[in-house]
Amino acid sequence: MEKDFSQEILEKIKTEQIKPKSRWLFVFKNSLVWLIFGASIILGALSFSVILHFWEINDWDVSYRLSENFLTFVILTMPYFWLICFLAFLGLAYLYLKNTKTGYRYEFAKILVLSLALSFVIGGLLYSIGAGRQTESEFAARAPFYKNIKNNQEEIWFQPERGVIAGKVLTILENGEILELDDPHHVVWTVDASDAEYFREFIVKEGFMIKVFGKVGDEKNLFVAEEIRPLVRNEDPKFRVFSSVSEGK
């Protein structure tokens, strides 16, 4: 270079009063990236704990009622909302770990394994202290969009031709031998529960969401119950639109 380039740069810096950015700004930025990474891992783990909760309360023993094979039942009852949350937070954690000062040095597979391992361990711990159940209940109570998602998923338990109906208990008659049930399409069913078994120590009350296994009766909208279960187990009734029940172990 013919001109004195270094002097020119220095003059530019002095003339334009250019100053180095504060060290604290970089410390703050780096801390923020780590914080978002940590938060993503925690939220992903929380989503994972809800998935574990759903796994626990799923009615695996009656999978044959809904589908021909077990895999179809798994696909039907999978908690997609929480699965998407889990994957989204996992993706966010990956992006932010990549954006830490030395994150680019790690291969995709290593970051994925690390993030998954952290999510599984923390998620398992959160599940063991009941955070999965609590989070799900809070969502059901406070997030209207989640209620819609959940109601759609609960509709899979309304398949009279397969011997299962679900809905809200409107009235209990004749000492619990007859129930009036409002199904997801707001058709009222008369449920003959005289010979029905109840899931564990489940006690039906008006307003509860239940599912009933049995068969369609001879009369219109009559359903003869063999077994009655809460629609969703392990939920605190106060968090439900249509109050549900705790499992009552």
């Binding site: 380039f5 020119e8 740069i9 530019k12 810096i13 250019i18 100053k19 180095p20 950015k21 504060s22 060290r23 700004l25 970089f26 000062k101």
Partner: peptide
């Protein structure tokens, strides 16, 4: 190159 050196100067504190 001039922009590069100005950026280097501005970001000197981020070098570790």
């Amino acid at each position: 190159l001039q922009e590069v050196f100005v950026k280097i100067y501005i970001n000197l504190n981020s070098f570790d």
